[in-house]
């Protein structure tokens, strides 16, 4: 009988509580003892980075500023990221969050300019419906690409993987639910591709995301704002 992701989560939590184990234990046992966290930035400025650094943040999701003059877009983006790297040093890592706001051409130009910068990945550069443009982008650039924030059908991830479009899949945990997110991760694993699920806003799903991270082999990083971190990580908790 189909049930909603929320019903599924409630059931999983009830079952794991009854068994007196954390959810990650119920789902297959821990594969790691701490979870790497991606901290979203609002402005993406060095000042913001310096404010977040003492809270333990080491990996940052930087929103792309696509509104400025087109001819300066690439150089502005490179300059912003270089200023952030200068503020954080070699220990700072960045995701360029594009929110599907670029054209495939803009994405190609930015990716080419940033190859030596070592972004963790470039997130959702353009809408996934631009299949051919994205295929060209993925073949041209060595910058890892992340996709999936706007994917609604789980089977669509197979197309992304088959076409080699993503190095990171970003299924929405509240949208797909725990088991389907883990199934998407299992599919990605056979392509040597990582997952960085989206947790959404509610506390229940934010907690669930850390549980899924704890037991999923090809999990890479969890985007979460406002949690205290230790050198970029949050420890996995032992209590149910």
């Amino acid at each position: 009988m189909p049930r909603s992701p929320q019903d599924e989560l409630d059931w999983l939590l009830a079952e794991s509580r009854r068994a007196r184990v954390p959810l990650y234990q119920w789902l297959g046992g821990p594969v790691r003892n701490k979870v790497r966290i991606l901290t979203p930035m609002q402005a993406g400025t060095p000042e913001e980075l310096r404010r977040l650094w003492p809270l333990g943040a080491r990996a940052f999701s930087v929103p792309v500023a696509a509104g400025g003059p087109a001819r300066r877009f690439v150089s502005d983006t490179v300059r912003r990221l270089e200023a952030l790297r200068a503020a954080g040093g070699d220990a700072a890592d960045f995701v360029l969050s594009c929110r599907a706001q670029l054209t495939p051409l803009q994405a190609s130009q930015v990716a080419r300019a940033l190859e030596g910068f070592h972004l963790l990945w470039m997130d959702e550069p353009c809408p996934v419906r631009y299949t051919e443009g994205l295929r060209k982008l993925a073949e041209e650039t060595a910058v890892p690409l992340g996709f999936g924030t706007a994917v609604e059908e789980p089977a669509a991830f197979l197309g992304l993987l088959r076409d080699g479009l993503g190095a990171v899949l970003r299924p929405s945990l509240p949208h797909f639910g725990v088991q389907m997110t883990r199934k998407i991760a299992a599919l990605a694993e056979s392509y040597y591709v990582a997952v960085a699920p989206l947790a959404g806003e509610s506390q229940a799903w934010r907690n669930a995301a850390l549980q899924v991270a704890g037991c999923t082999a090809n999990f890479f990083i969890q985007e979460l704002a406002g949690v205290p971190l230790e050198d970029g990580y949050i420890a996995l908790e032992a209590r149910p």
Partner: peptide, 11 residues
């Protein structure tokens, strides 16, 4: 190496 890796390690 992890699935995706850091600037420091690549460098």
């Amino acid at each position: 190496y992890e699935w995706i890796d850091s600037h420091a390690k690549v460098k």
